[in-house]
Amino acid sequence: MTSGVSASGEPAQFYWCLRHNRVETDGNACAGVDRLGPYATAQDASHALQKVAEREARLDAEDARWKGETA
């Protein structure tokens, strides 16, 4: 799964499956609505939820500053 090359010879893409809470590849990925990605590596995909949480916190802080609130 972590070879970095798909069966077609293209660079492999990895996804975080929200349904199964696991890393999936092009060959075994759930429907797009149930996944985050693509990511270049399985490790990047495994950190997808952390990245989303960090991004949301950053955007919430920006919104608070925009509204004149202290964050």
Score class of each variant (00 low, 15 high):
residue 54 E to S: 00
residue 12 A to I: 05
residue 17 C to H: 03
residue 31 A to V: 10
residue 48 A to T: 10
residue 58 R to I: 10
residue 21 N to T: 10
residue 42 A to K: 02
residue 40 A to D: 15
residue 57 A to G: 07
residue 14 F to T: 12
residue 57 A to Q: 13
residue 36 L to T: 10
residue 11 P to G: 00
residue 60 D to K: 15
residue 46 S to R: 04
residue 35 R to C: 10
residue 22 R to D: 10
residue 40 A to Y: 03
residue 62 E to H: 06
residue 27 G to I: 00
residue 40 A to G: 13
residue 27 G to Q: 00
residue 29 A to P: 07
residue 43 Q to V: 13
residue 70 T to M: 08
residue 20 H to A: 11
residue 63 D to P: 05
residue 68 G to H: 06
residue 41 T to H: 06
residue 33 V to D: 04
residue 20 H to I: 01
residue 20 H to E: 08
residue 65 R to Y: 11
residue 42 A to V: 11
residue 15 Y to A: 06
residue 37 G to H: 01
residue 27 G to E: 01
residue 22 R to T: 12
residue 19 R to F: 00
residue 34 D to Q: 11
residue 36 L to P: 09
residue 68 G to C: 06
residue 70 T to A: 14
residue 24 E to Y: 03
residue 19 R to E: 11
residue 37 G to Q: 05
residue 30 C to G: 07
residue 70 T to P: 12
residue 4 G to Y: 03
residue 15 Y to K: 03
residue 57 A to H: 09
residue 61 A to Q: 10
residue 41 T to K: 00
residue 51 K to V: 08
residue 57 A to M: 08
residue 53 A to M: 05
residue 12 A to W: 03
residue 56 E to H: 09
residue 26 D to P: 01
residue 11 P to T: 06
residue 66 W to V: 14
residue 24 E to M: 01
residue 26 D to T: 00
residue 32 G to C: 10
residue 19 R to G: 08
residue 30 C to M: 05
residue 57 A to L: 06
residue 25 T to I: 06
residue 70 T to Q: 14
residue 4 G to E: 00
residue 51 K to C: 06
residue 62 E to Y: 07
residue 49 L to G: 06
residue 48 A to C: 10
residue 32 G to A: 15
residue 67 K to M: 15
residue 29 A to F: 01
residue 61 A to G: 08
residue 60 D to N: 14
residue 19 R to Q: 11
residue 52 V to G: 00
residue 12 A to P: 03
residue 27 G to V: 00
residue 34 D to M: 09
residue 9 G to P: 01
residue 30 C to K: 02
residue 41 T to G: 13
residue 33 V to M: 05
residue 7 A to N: 04
residue 31 A to H: 07
residue 23 V to D: 04
residue 3 S to T: 15
residue 37 G to S: 09
residue 9 G to I: 05
residue 36 L to M: 14
residue 21 N to E: 13
residue 52 V to K: 10
residue 37 G to M: 02
residue 40 A to I: 14
residue 16 W to E: 07
residue 20 H to W: 04
residue 49 L to Q: 09
residue 47 H to F: 02
residue 65 R to P: 09
residue 59 L to D: 15
residue 27 G to N: 04
residue 62 E to I: 03
residue 34 D to K: 07
residue 9 G to C: 02
residue 39 Y to E: 14
